[in-house]
Design a protein around this nucleic acid. Structure first.
Length: 765
DNA sequence: CAGTGAGCGAGCTTCCGCTTGACTT
C-alpha cells in the first residue's frame, strides 16, 4: 500500500525525486506520452467535430497497466509532468487512462530538480489546465492533418513512401533554397591591400606591423595606381585611438546551442550529441538535455559563484540571468548544466568526458565577468592619397570569462583580423617605412551549405521544431532521401597579386581552393522536386512563418480565448479543399518530369523523371508499343540541369569490350559504381576508373587481380564443418559461418585458429 | 562493413512531440 504516487515523464528524474520525497512517496515515470492518435489511420473524426481517436501504443500497455494498478492503491496521485503544452497533455491523458478522480489527483509542476523546488510544488498543487491540454490537442491534430493529407499526394504524384509535414518540409525548403542561392551566386572580386610597416618594438628591435587599406579597390587599375603612388609617398601616423572593448560570455546551453557547439568544437553529429548527453543525464552528471531554456536555478548560480571564487577569485564572478529569446520557447526545464558545479571531471567514455567538460565550462563562463579588452587603431596616411592604412591591435586587459570558455562561430572566412595583437609603441606624426605593400584579389564568399547543427539553428530561429525533435527531423529528411550529408571538394580559383617591394611592382597569379565543404547537407533530386511541388501548391504550409502563426493560435487556445475545434475547423476548411483540388489535377507527366529531346538513334523521346526507385532517364513513352527503356541517374546529376547528351550517355553502358577466355567481357555502371563483368563475375573498377574509356587489357588485369584475391581469400577451412571458413575480407580476416560473419578477437592468429576456437567465437555472439 | 550489379508493379507507405530501451552489426 502506498500513500502517494508521483508520476513524472523521465525515469532518471523519478529516481532523483524519490530521494527527496522520502518513503511515503513512490515516484514512477510515464516515459513521455502514454497515448496518441492511432498510428495507422487518420484517426480524426471530421464529422464529429474533429474528435481524436486515441490509443495506447503496444509498447506502452504494460507500463500503463502498472501505473493503473498502483494509482488504484494510492491515496493521492501527483501528476508531475513538465509544465508545458505537451506535459499538460501527458497529465490529462494519464488522468483519463488511469481513471483518476478529481479528489485524489493533484497536478504539480517544477522547473528544477532540487529538493526545495519539489517540496514547494507539493505544497502548491493545482488542477489540470484544460485549455493548455486543448492547445496540445490542436497541435497534434493539425500535424496529423497536414502530414496525412499531404504525404499521400506525394505517393501518387512523385514516389511512394515519401512524406511531408509542418516541420520536415520547411527544413527541406531551407536546404533547397540555400542550394539555389549558391547556384546563382556570382563572386565579386576586389583588391585587398595590405602593407607591412617597419616599426620598433618596445625593446628597440625592428618588427613588421600589418595594416590594411581602409577600403577594397574594385579594379586592377585602381590597385596598380595606388601601389604606384606608394612608391614615393610618405606614411605619417595621423591618429592613434584607443577604445575599451567588452566581451560578454554566451548563455548556458540549450539543446540547440549544445548541438551547435558540440559540432563545432568536438565534431559531433547532432544525434551523437544527444546520445552522449542522454548518458550524462542518466548518470546524474547533467540536467535534462532537451530544453529551450537558458535559465539556471538559484542553487546552480550560487554553486557556480562559489566554484569561480575558489578557483579564480572573486573578481571573476558576475551573476547573470539569461532569458530565452527563441520563438515558441516553453521553458519547462533548466538550461543544460552540470548537476554539481564543483565536479570538474567525470568518469565515462572519452566522448562523455569531452561533452561534460564543454557543458561545465560554458555554464561556469556564463556566470563570469566580462572580458575587458583595449582596441588600438592606428591610422596611417599615404602622402596626399585619400586612402588610409589602418593597423588594429587588441590587448586583453582582463580575461574574465575568456579564461574558461570561448564560443566558436561557423564562419570560416578570412581570419587574419582575429589574430590582432598588441601593437608596438608609436606616436602621432612619426613617419613609417614599409617593407612591402601587396594588393591581392579577394572574392566575396558564396553562402555556405547547412551543416546539421546550423540547420538546427535556422529551424530554432524560425520557431520550427522542438528540442526533442531536432535530431529526429534531420534523420527523417535524410531517410526520405530529400537531403544527403556529404563532402564536396572545392574548385581551384586563380587570383591576382600585385606586390610593391624594393620600389618594384610585381604581378603574379596564385591559386586557391574555394568552397571545400565537409559533412554538409545537400538537397537531392527528389528533395528538390518535392519541395518545388509543395511550395507551388501549398505555399501556406511551406511558408517559413506558418508554424509561428499557428503557434499564436495555440496560445489563444491555451488562454481560453478560442475553442480548439474552432481553430482547427478554420484551418481545415481552408486547407482541405486545396488538397482535394491538387489531388484531382490530372497530370500527364509526373511531377518534376522534364523532356530533354529526341534520341537520334531511335527517334524516341528522352526525358528525366522520378520513378519508383528514384530519378531515371527514360527513352520512349509508356503509350508506345515498344516499352520505354530506363537508366538511373547518378547522384551527382541534377534533373533540373542535365543535358540530352549527358542523359544519353547512360545508355552507352553496359558495353562489350571483347572476349577473354572465350567469354564476353562487358563493362557497366551499377548501384555501387562502375564494374567489369566476365563469366558472371563482377569486378568493381578502381576509384577514378572510367567505364567509357577502359580497355580490354585493363579489364583483364582487374579480373586476374580479383581471382588472385579470391584465391587468397580463404585462410582456413575445417573438416569437421565445411560451413565454417576463415576468410580474408576487405577489413581484415574474419570467420564466415552460415551467411553470418564474426570478428576474430584481438591476439588470435587467424591461420592458427582451431575448430573449437571458431565455434566458441560463433557461439559467444 | 565483410558483397552488392533489378525493376516500372500488389500493398504499403505518412505527421510531430514526449520519453527510453531492446534489438543487431
Amino acid at each position: 500500500m502506498i500513500k502517494n504516487l508521483v508520476i513524472v515523464e523521465s525515469p532518471a528524474k523519478a529516481k532523483t525525486i524519490e530521494k527527496f520525497l522520502g518513503k511515503d512517496y513512490k515516484v514512477l515515470s510515464s516515459y513521455g506520452h502514454i497515448r496518441d492518435l492511432k498510428k495507422k489511420d487518420f484517426s480524426i473524426d471530421i464529422s464529429k467535430n474533429y474528435k481524436p481517436l486515441y490509443e495506447i501504443p503496444a509498447d506502452k500497455k504494460k507500463l500503463v497497466d502498472e501505473l493503473c494498478k498502483l494509482s488504484k492503491e494510492a491515496e493521492t496521485v501527483w501528476l508531475a509532468s513538465d509544465e508545458d503544452r505537451e506535459g499538460e497533455a501527458i497529465a490529462w491523458h494519464l488522468y483519463e487512462v488511469l481513471g483518476l478522480s478529481p479528489e485524489k489527483t493533484k497536478r504539480i509542476v517544477f522547473h528544477e530538480i532540487t529538493k526545495n523546488a519539489i517540496l514547494h510544488a507539493i505544497d502548491n498543487p493545482r488542477s489540470i489546465d484544460n485549455n493548455l491540454v486543448n492547445a496540445q490537442q490542436a497541435r497534434r491534430i493539425l500535424d496529423r492533418i497536414v502530414g496525412f493529407e499531404l504525404s499521400p499526394i506525394l505517393w501518387r504524384k512523385v514516389k511512394p513512401a515519401l512524406s511531408a509535414g509542418r516541420v520536415q518540409s520547411v527544413a527541406v525548403r531551407v536546404i533547397v533554397e540555400r542550394e539555389r542561392e549558391i547556384q546563382q551566386f556570382k563572386a565579386d572580386a576586389a583588391y585587398r591591400v595590405i602593407a607591412l610597416f617597419k616599426v620598433k618594438d618596445d625593446k628597440g628591435n625592428i618588427t613588421e606591423m600589418k595594416a590594411e587599406l581602409n577600403q577594397r579597390l574594385q579594379t586592377k587599375e585602381e590597385a596598380l595606381a595606388l601601389l604606384e603612388s606608394c612608391k614615393k609617398a610618405d606614411f605619417p601616423i595621423e591618429e592613434i585611438t584607443q577604445k575599451p572593448l567588452k566581451k560578454s560570455p554566451a548563455a548556458p546551453f540549450t539543446t540547440s546551442t549544445l548541438q551547435q557547439e558540440a559540432a563545432r568544437k568536438l565534431n559531433f553529429s547532432v544525434s551523437q550529441t544527444m546520445m552522449v548527453a542522454q548518458k550524462l543525464y542518466e548518470a546524474g552528471h547533467i540536467t535534462y538535455m532537451r530544453t529551450d531554456s537558458m535559465n539556471l536555478s538559484e542553487m546552480a548560480i550560487a554553486t557556480a559563484k562559489e566554484e569561480i571564487t575558489q578557483s579564480m577569485g572573486e573578481q571573476y564572478v558576475k551573476t547573470r540571468q539569461y532569458h530565452t529569446k527563441s520563438k515558441g520557447a516553453q521553458e519547462a526545464h533548466e538550461a543544460i548544466r552540470p548537476t554539481y558545479m564543483n565536479k570538474a571531471a567525470i568518469d565515462g567514455t572519452a566522448q562523455e568526458k569531452k561533452l561534460y567538460d564543454l557543458i561545465r565550462k560554458r555554464t561556469i563562463a556564463s556566470q563570469m565577468s566580462d572580458a575587458e579588452l583595449e582596441k588600438t587603431t592606428v591610422t596611417i596616411g599615404i602622402g596626399e592619397n585619400k586612402y588610409k592604412f589602418l593597423a588594429i591591435g587588441e590587448v586583453i586587459k582582463f580575461d574574465g570569462f575568456l579564461r574558461v570558455y570561448r564560443e566558436s562561430t561557423d564562419d570560416e572566412t578570412e581570419s587574419s583580423d582575429s589574430d590582432a595583437r598588441l601593437l608596438p609603441p608609436m606616436s602621432v606624426g612619426e613617419l613609417l617605412d614599409f617593407a612591402e605593400i601587396s594588393a591581392t584579389e579577394r572574392f566575396t564568399q558564396r553562402p555556405a551549405r547547412y551543416s546539421e547543427a546550423s540547420l538546427v539553428r535556422k529551424l530554432e530561429e524560425l520557431g520550427i521544431g522542438r528540442p526533442s525533435t531536432y535530431a529526429p527531423t534531420i534523420s527523417t529528411i535524410q531517410q526520405r532521401e530529400y537531403v544527403e550529408k556529404g563532402d564536396r571538394t572545392g574548385e581551384e580559383r586563380q587570383f591576382n597579386t600585385l606586390k610593391l617591394k624594393s620600389n618594384k611592382i610585381s604581378d603574379t597569379t596564385g591559386k586557391e581552393m574555394v568552397g571545400n565543404e565537409k559533412a554538409k547537407l545537400f538537397p537531392t533530386n527528389i528533395g528538390i522536386v518535392v519541395n518545388d511541388f509543395l511550395t507551388e501548391y501549398f505555399p501556406d504550409i511551406l511558408n517559413f512563418n506558418f508554424t509561428a502563426n499557428v503557434e499564436k493560435e495555440f496560445d489563444n487556445i491555451a488562454e481560453g480565448e478560442i475553442e480548439w475545434t474552432t481553430a482547427i475547423d478554420s484551418f481545415y476548411k481552408a486547407f482541405h479543399p486545396v488538397v482535394e483540388r491538387t489531388s484531382a489535377i490530372k497530370t500527364e507527366h509526373k511531377v518534376g518530369e522534364r523532356i530533354l529531346g529526341v534520341d537520334p538513334k531511335s527517334g524516341r523521346q528522352v526525358s528525366v523523371k522520378i520513378s519508383r526507385f528514384g530519378p531515371v532517364v527514360q527513352i520512349g513513352t509508356a503509350d508506345e508499343e515498344e516499352k520505354p527503356v530506363f537508366a538511373s541517374l547518378k547522384k551527382s546529376e541534377s534533373m533540373e540541369t542535365i543535358s540530352l547528351e549527358a542523359a544519353l550517355k547512360h545508355f552507352e553502358l553496359p558495353r562489350t569490350l571483347g572476349e577473354y577466355e572465350e567469354k564476353e567481357v562487358t563493362v557497366g555502371a551499377g548501384r555501387f559504381g562502375p564494374y567489369v563483368k566476365h563469366n558472371s563475375v563482377y569486378v568493381s573498377l578502381p576509384k577514378g576508373g572510367d567505364p567509357m574509356t577502359i580497355k580490354l587489357e585493363e579489364a583483364i588485369v582487374l579480373i586476374e587481380e580479383k581471382r588472385k584475391k579470391e584465391s587468397e581469400k580463404q585462410i582456413k577451412t575445417f573438416e569437421q564443418d565445411p560451413d565454417i571458413e576463415v576468410l580474408n575480407g576487405r577489413y581484415g580476416p574474419y570467420i564466415a559461418y552460415k551467411k553470418k560473419n564474426y570478428k576474430i578477437p584481438k591476439g588470435k592468429v587467424p591461420a592458427e585458429l582451431s575448430y573449437e576456437e571458431c565455434m566458441s567465437i560463433i557461439n559467444s555472439k
